[in-house]
Amino acid sequence: MVSLFCRRLALALGLVILASSLTFALIASAPGNAANFLAERAAGPKATHALVEKIEHDLGLNDPLYVRYGHWAVGTVRGQWGESLRTGRPITKELAERLPTTMRLLAGGGVIALVMPLILGLLGAVSNGGPVDRTLRVLALFGASAPNFFVGAMLVLLLSVKLHWLPAFGTTGFASWVMPWITVGLFPTCVLSRVVRVSLQELMSRPFTTTGFAKGYGRTEVLLREALPNLAVPFLTTFGAQFALMIIGAIVVESVFAWQGIGAFFIDSIRFRDFPAMQAVLMTFVTFFVLVNFVVDMLCMAIDPRIRRSHIAGA
């Protein structure tokens, strides 16, 4: 198990390094010049070409790409991403202030995406083609097709404008978190509910469920006692992928509900061509994605010994 952990950790670090180099190259090749932006902010319309050249030299923008990447990578390891071109503050401090907001959004949406699919999938499996199962299938299709900004707008229109139940924006308390949580968690909930429903249907044809019926259990008991425990690995694998992708939905949701998280900071960085901040945020997203999948991979190997044996045999 220790050797598997080390190999998986090395693979995760390799993916982070590869993704960071691609991200840096992508941002570096984007149109626009950070030196021009800084010169205009410092001197306004009177910014001279000499000032632009001086800023390029000070920032190392004239260095080869691999040299610039090396400097940036060393700073990343040290937790030093420089200063934001837009605010002039250290990027690390900007992210540290906004990270709790984004983590709260992901945590609430993650709980919804973890619990609700199991409930909905079980209800559909118990109904097994009945009205409840058909209704849940239609709702899951609609929820998986609706974009986040549409869901958020509809929730604001209904729950805030029409019914006045919840605040439309801000992070003033629990009531202001409900709609963002639902918005960011709806898509993974709908996808995972279908995964649970289809997987349970397939598991119900396995010999161990037939044995459960032979013991005198009803359909609900067989689902809970026999089929559901065998759903752990595929459910966790799919949940990990969906939870990691929720960081993309968070960018939209934070803008819709005026949450000042990392997603909103990323949007502002794009608008103002704040290249250092864009690189830092993308690196944060990449690390989060790889870390979530690494943790899920380890959990699946801990739960199912067959996965451990297959990895050992293939080593």
Rank of each mutant, 00 (worst) to 15 (best):
V2N: 11
S3K: 15
L4M: 12
F5D: 01
A12Y: 11
G14P: 13
L15D: 08
L22D: 14
L22P: 15
T23M: 12
T23Q: 04
I27D: 03
S29M: 15
N33W: 07
A39Y: 05
P45I: 12
P45F: 02
K46C: 05
H49G: 14
A50D: 09
V52D: 00
K54W: 04
E56Y: 07
D58Y: 13
L65W: 01
Y69D: 10
W72P: 03
A73E: 00
T76K: 09
Q80K: 12
W81A: 03
S84L: 04
R86I: 03
T87V: 00
G88M: 09
I91T: 07
A96Y: 02
R98P: 08
A107T: 15
G108L: 12
G110N: 03
V111T: 14
L114R: 06
V115N: 04
I119S: 08
I119F: 11
L122V: 13
G124D: 08
P131R: 15
P131L: 14
R137V: 12
F142I: 15
A144Y: 08
G152S: 04
L158Q: 02
L159H: 04
L159E: 00
K162G: 06
P167Y: 10
A168S: 13
F169T: 10
F169R: 15
F169S: 15
G170D: 08
T172E: 15
G173H: 12
F174W: 14
F174M: 14
A175G: 12
S176Y: 08
V178W: 06
V178R: 07
M179G: 10
W181R: 01
L186V: 13
L192Y: 05
L192W: 12
L200W: 04
Q201D: 07
M204P: 07
T211D: 13
F213R: 09
K215E: 06
Y217F: 14
R219G: 05
E226K: 04
V233E: 10
F239Q: 03
Q242H: 00
M246E: 01
M246K: 05
G249P: 05
I251M: 12
I251E: 01
S255E: 02
W259N: 02
I262T: 06
F265M: 13
S269M: 07
F275R: 01
F275Q: 03
Q279T: 10
V281F: 00
V281Q: 06
L282Q: 03
T287K: 09
F289K: 02
V292R: 03
M298H: 08
A302L: 12
R309V: 05
I312D: 11
A315G: 15
